[in-house]
Amino acid sequence: MTSSMPRGLTRTQIAERVALDIPDGAYVNLGIGMPEIVAQCIPDEKEVILHTENGLLGMGPPPPAGEEDPELINAGKRPVTTVPGASFFHHVDSFAMIRGGHLDICVLGALEVAANGDLANWSTGTGAVPAVGGAMDLVTGVKAVYVMAGHCTREGEPKLVTECRYPLTGKAVVDRVYTDLAVIDITSQGFAVRDLAPGVTLSDVAERTAAPVVDARRGSHLVDDTGFQSGPSSFLKSEAST
C-alpha cells in the first residue's frame, strides 16, 4: 500500500532543477513539451546555447505578440527568436550535431524509462498516427540524455519501470531522470536516487517506482558510477525563497 502522494515539485521547479545541472557553455537540445520550460530557468550567468533540430543554434525566447516570423520556428513549430551569435543550417548539419556527438545534453519527455536506460517516448502503440521526429537520433547521438517527466502518469502508474511496454525510442540511452519526486541516475545497479525533492522520502520514491531503487545521495555508501560530476547539495535554488 502506498502512502499519500507527497506534494513534489511543480513542472517549473523540475525545470529549475534540470537547469542547475546544465553547465556554463553547454550546447543543449530541449524536447517538445515540458523540457521547453528549462529554457526559462537557465540563470543569466550561464551561457547555454540552445539547439533546435530544424536548423538553429542560438535559439532565443518566443517573440512578443505581433512579431512572430513563420520562417523562424522551433522543432515544436512555435515562433522563436535568435540570440546574438546564432546560426542557421540545413537538416544534415543539424543532425550531424546530434548524431555526431557534438551536443552536450538533450532533455526529453518520457512515457516510460526502464532501469537499464531504455526509453519509450514516441508512441503508445495504438490508434494515433505514429510520429517519431528526431527523438531516436537525439537519444543515440547526444552525449548526455536527460529525461524530465512526472514520476507517475496522471492515473498514478509508475513511469520508471523494469521493462518498457511501449515501443522503444532507444535501448539503454537515458543517463538521468528528473521527476517531481527525485533526480535518479541510470546506473549498472539500476535506478539510483541522487537527490530527493523537499519533503519526499526514499520510500515515497520506491513505492512509486516499478523497479528497485538504490540510494546514491551524497553521503550514502553507494559509489556513483555514471561519471557525472556530483550535483549541487541544495535541491532547489528557489527553495529558500518560496
Binding site: 533540430e53 540545413h90 537538416h91 544534415v92 543532425f95 548524431r99 505514429p130 528526431g134 537520433d137
Partner: peptide, 15 residues
C-alpha cells in the same frame, strides 16, 4: 501508406 523515418536518418538518406 506511410514510411516513418527518424528525422536525422531521413535527412542523411536524402543527402
Amino acid at each position: 501508406a506511410l514510411e516513418l523515418v527518424p528525422q536525422g536518418t531521413l535527412a542523411e538518406r536524402i543527402r
